[in-house]
Amino acid sequence: MFLGTYAPKLDEKGRIILPAKFWDELSSGVVLTRGQERCVYVFSSATFQQQLEHLRNAPLTNKAGRDYLRLFLSGASDEVPDKQRRVTIPPMLREYAGLDRELTVIGAGNRAEIWSTEAWNAYYAEKEEAFANTEEEVIPGIF
């Protein structure tokens, strides 16, 4: 499970050092892909396969499903971290998410997310007040 917030740096070769707490789950391979709100999703290879199985069940007759699947999978890149826990973020994904040297990596349950620090701070500032003042059930069965 991915939890927490981290502030690694992107090196000159487009690599990031994965947070040590994520290493056990990601050491055998990761899949990076486009995420919502212009971040990069980071899945373990096994979790990505599970996500792919769910996506395969979408009916081909559903245009929104086809569109989502195309964008999600065309941006996917499978990577193997090196011995220093570094993984290369492909240029296309760095551009998509507006990544530069300053990054924020958050745990999001079954995945990690890589954000430009500027984008994360703006997102957090916009959403935190509503989160703090939530008075009704947002996700069925939670709280």
Rank of each mutant, 00 (worst) to 15 (best):
G98M: 02
E79S: 14
V138M: 13
A76P: 10
D78W: 12
N121I: 00
K83E: 08
W23F: 13
P59M: 00
L60H: 09
D11E: 07
A97V: 07
G29T: 15
W120C: 00
M1R: 09
L3C: 15
I139R: 03
A97E: 04
W115A: 00
L69A: 14
G107T: 09
A64H: 13
K13I: 07
H54Q: 13
F131Y: 15
A20K: 13
D78K: 15
A46T: 05
M92A: 08
F72C: 03
K63G: 05
I106E: 10
S28M: 11
W23Q: 10
A130Y: 02
I142V: 15
K13W: 07
F143Y: 04
Q49I: 14
R101T: 15
Y68C: 05
D82H: 07
C39Q: 01
T104C: 03
A58S: 08
T134R: 15
L3H: 15
G141C: 14
L55N: 05
L32P: 01
S77L: 11
Q51H: 00
T88N: 00
T88W: 00
G35W: 12
G65A: 15
E95G: 09
D82M: 11
E25M: 05
G65M: 10
R66T: 00
M1G: 14
V42H: 10
P59H: 07
C39V: 01
Y96D: 14
A76Q: 04
K63Q: 13
G29F: 10
E129W: 06
L10I: 07
A112N: 12
P81L: 12
E53S: 11
E137A: 03
